[in-house]
């Protein structure tokens, strides 16, 4: 009785708020060190603000005539995204089946595959593009390969996470009558996951359309080539047109893909 009426005692760390104070101190130290390392100079930004606003003013006068030049590269950007995502998906399917813990019971194979996928996912897209431009030369082929590898890493992870959530009943039923592994996958796994696969494919396509608009900046084809050209020529009116056109394309693709995904799920 007496015990339950006692005020719960607080430990030393709780009484003096050691954790939050320590957290704040570490945060402040990190912020000071990072701003030193990154040469942050708040005054300089405001001193040069006029240049920045000048740039914005020049961008707010788009040269609409440029629109006729950038149709073709805009199409090319979407084509790159579609092909890259498709190639990446084709390679991702077997890998995701091998990485799913409910289909492959051999832990070594599964973990090796997962480590490979983790490594692929660490590399930023532009970095991959820079390397593939060196291999394939300037042009959209480098962009397609970059997007294929980029979407391979992403889709395999999304796919094997879906596969791990499926209902094991149909699989066990087929296995119990002696079906082969491929038969099990075809009749028990694929029907359960097809819609989610298509949905993730479309989601990756959205991301790739965004990514492919800047790949051209380092020579991997698409609208980015013209982005870089206009920026180098200080032709900011053209830059504005390119950004607006990209924006519309991205929004349209997002809209279509969102609509299709809502139908599917």
């Amino acid at each position: 009785m007496e015990n339950s009426q006692k005020i719960p005692s607080r430990s030393f760390a709780q009484r003096w708020h050691i954790k939050p104070i320590l957290g704040t101190v570490i945060m402040v130290i990190l912020l000071v060190f990072s701003s030193q390392m990154a040469d942050v100079n708040v005054g300089m930004f405001f001193a040069n603000l006029s240049q920045f606003t000048d740039l914005l003013v020049r961008m707010s006068n788009p040269t609409w005539s440029y629109l006729s030049i950038i149709w073709q590269p805009l199409y090319e950007t979407i084509q790159m995204a579609i092909l890259g995502t498709t190639i990446g998906t084709i390679f991702a399917v077997p890998f995701s089946l091998l990485a799913a813990s409910n289909l492959v019971h051999n832990g070594i194979i599964r973990n090796v595959i997962r480590i490979i996928l983790d490594l692929v996912r660490t590399l930023p897209d532009l970095l991959l593009a820079a390397i593939f431009v060196a291999i394939f030369g300037i042009g959209s082929t480098a962009g397609v390969v970059t997007l294929a590898i980029f979407s391979f890493g992403m889709i395999s992870k999304l796919f094997y996470e879906v596969i791990e959530t499926i209902d094991m009943g149909p699989i066990e039923a087929l296995e119990s009558v002696g079906a082969r592994k491929l038969t099990v996958i075809w009749y028990a796994v694929i029907p359960q996951i097809l819609n989610q696969f298509i949905s993730y494919f479309l989601y990756t396509l959205e991301i790739n359309v965004r990514a492919s608009t800047v790949l051209g900046y380092i020579g991997a084809g698409g609208i980015g080539v013209f982005l870089q050209r206009s920026l180098n020529e200080f032709n900011y009116g053209a830059t504005a047109v390119i950004i607006l056109a990209t924006l519309i394309i991205v929004l349209v693709i997002d809209g279509i893909s969102n609509h299709l995904r809502r139908i599917l799920l």
């Binding site: 990154a38 300089m44 950004i243 990209t246």
Partner: peptide, 21 residues
């Protein structure tokens, strides 16, 4: 979200010069 990050970086380079800032 849709404004390319690289273009933003180039715009800020014009304002504060090239570098990590």
């Amino acid at each position: 979200r849709t404004f390319p990050e690289i273009v933003l970086a180039i715009m800020f380079i014009k304002a504060v010069g090239p570098g990590s800032y």
